[in-house]
């Protein structure tokens, strides 16, 4: 019973961690939407600070989960797989935090001409993370469900790539300086990276579920 209790605590921590990552992305979306409407003012900085604080909280929970896992509440093979998945998931809020911080430091907003594509890309990223979260919670032994979610994420990633390419073309077609173009391109890539990271997490989850296939 002690083992079940330990794993129940671990599952609670893990779920909380995934929720926090998802919330970080939501706040990040709000911050980007706000920057399009009002520019990089003080309120944007508050939102960016919130993204950073949530990312940092998620890191704390991740470390706590890792400690709990190594107190032998899971079998070693599950422990290693879960650890790997958590570390990959951790890159998602990191990516959002990185862009929000970069925008604050560089005082460079995303080109307003890209607003609809960027918001669409962010929606795709948030949706992809939702699927990733669903798969990551409890899909090690549910191969068919994992495969279905993987297809959805692949589609989102492919759509995201198209949007990214379109936006980069737009940026480089504009009559601005090369430095500005490179900064814009980097920011677009950073937003697009969230979909890619979700795909990487999903790839790992698929392998874990294949390994457990009986």
């Amino acid at each position: 019973m002690f083992l079940f209790k330990k794993n129940k605590d671990l599952l609670e921590q893990y779920t909380k961690y995934l929720e926090l990552c998802a919330e970080t992305l939501d706040i990040f979306r709000k911050a980007i939407a706000y920057s399009f409407e009002n520019g990089l003012n003080e309120h944007f900085e508050v939102l960016a600070g919130k993204v950073h604080a949530m990312e940092s909280d998620a890191d704390d929970i991740r470390r706590q989960i890792e400690r709990t896992m190594y107190e032998q509440s899971l079998l070693p093979e599950s422990r290693e797989d879960l650890l790997d998945i958590i570390e990959r998931i951790d890159m998602v809020p990191n990516c959002a935090d990185h862009l929000a911080t970069l925008m604050t430091l560089q005082r460079t907003p995303i080109n307003p001409a890209l607003k609809s594509e960027i918001m669409e890309l962010l929606d795709l990223a948030i949706e992809s993370f939702k699927y990733t979260k669903e798969a990551a919670v409890d899909c090690f032994l549910k191969m068919e469900k994992v495969k279905g979610l993987k297809i959805l994420i692949d589609n989102n990633e492919s759509l995201g790539d198209k949007l990214e390419h379109k936006m980069i073309r737009t940026v480089f077609a504009e009559n601005t300086g090369t430095g500005e173009k490179i900064i814009q391109k980097d920011m677009i890539n950073q937003v697009g990276e969230i979909c890619n990271l979700c795909e990487h997490v999903m790839d790992r989850i698929v392998i874990c579920s294949i390994k457990r296939q009986l």
Binding site: K6, L75, F140, L141
Partner: peptide, 16 residues
Amino acid sequence: IRKIKPSVFIYDPVMS
């Protein structure tokens, strides 16, 4: 196991 499809958080302690 295929019928029950337990979560990894249940499966692991049961296995142990």
